[in-house]
Design a protein around this nucleic acid. Structure first.
Lengths: 148, 148
DNA sequence: CCCATTTAGGTTGTGCACAATCTAATTGGG
DNA sequence: CCCAATTAGATTGTGCACAACCTAAATGGG
């Protein structure tokens, strides 16, 4: 064991990268029909859960910075799915509100996650177990980083 | 259960997306010191495993197309880590060969995956289990797609 | 042998992701 | 009250990712 093989297939980083790409690829045709991308879908998820969040609040939830979110949210606005309004109490903040079209879209995507799970060949139980494992990894990474 | 909550935290797609981002973020400072990015690291992994692969072979392993790989490999070439050579037997093919610097880099990164695993708070066993779960998801997605 | 088809790789355009930088609004210490 | 420091968001530059398209090389059926 003096050699370090570094075989691609053995790397967890690559397994994660591939799985993420494959799952995004499953979402793509479904979201294409609705005219949105996968990251835009995530922003909408954050808004369906709590409408009127500020850009930085969305960024805190999705772990994305303004350099990513500013243009993304503008594209959602151009499609008429959200509206951006300056917060009256703090003019620095931009709150993002769903339009009626943005609200309606929620019903159209409600079945998408289930369709994806089926295509991924996952039972509901294994799905939940995987999700919890992934979330604990993410949590421990972010926890470690906040110790800097 | 007439309502469909679509809570962000409950979505496996989001757990996967977040974990992938978090792990990439762990790699970033380590790879920064070596002057390469995470996708460039994956291409090098594919070459350390089998030097002289063609662009399309690398694409088959990493599931990336020429639109992504062509410029990425050119950047690796500009850094002196790889060389591109047309295959004599089939002039359409471009084979990518590691330079001495490219080979040397392998030893410098050999400990990186372990460091990342530690930071992610994972034991070796849970790491392998996760990897296998992810790989089976990726496999079943790609298997399904080839049935089209 | 010839030309239609296929295959390899590159290019262009759009969108995500992040670092670095900028401006404007807010806050807080003296 | 005033100005330095902080905070929110936007902008710029680089690189990844993919669809659509392009050219050249190889292939294969007639």
């Amino acid at each position: 064991m003096t050699e370090n093989p570094l075989i691609l297939r053995d790397q967890v980083c690559f397994a994660l990268y591939s799985a993420q790409h494959a799952v995004t690829g499953l979402y793509r045709p479904l979201l294409d029909e609705l005219g949105i991308t996968y990251p835009q879908f995530l922003v909408l998820l954050a808004l369906w859960e709590a409408d009127g969040r500020s850009v930085s609040q969305i960024g805190a939830v999705l772990r994305l910075d303004s350099g990513t979110l500013s243009p993304l949210i503008k594209r959602l606005e151009q499609q008429g799915l959200v509206e951006r309004r300056r917060d009256a109490a703090d003019e620095r903040r931009v709150r993002v509100h769903l339009t009626p079209d943005g609200h309606r879209l929620r019903e159209q995507v409600s079945d998408v996650p289930r369709q994806v799970a089926v295509a991924a060949g996952l039972t509901p139980e294994s799905l939940f177990a995987l999700r919890d494992t992934l979330n604990s990894i993410t949590a421990s990474i972010h926890h470690d980083q906040s110790k800097d």
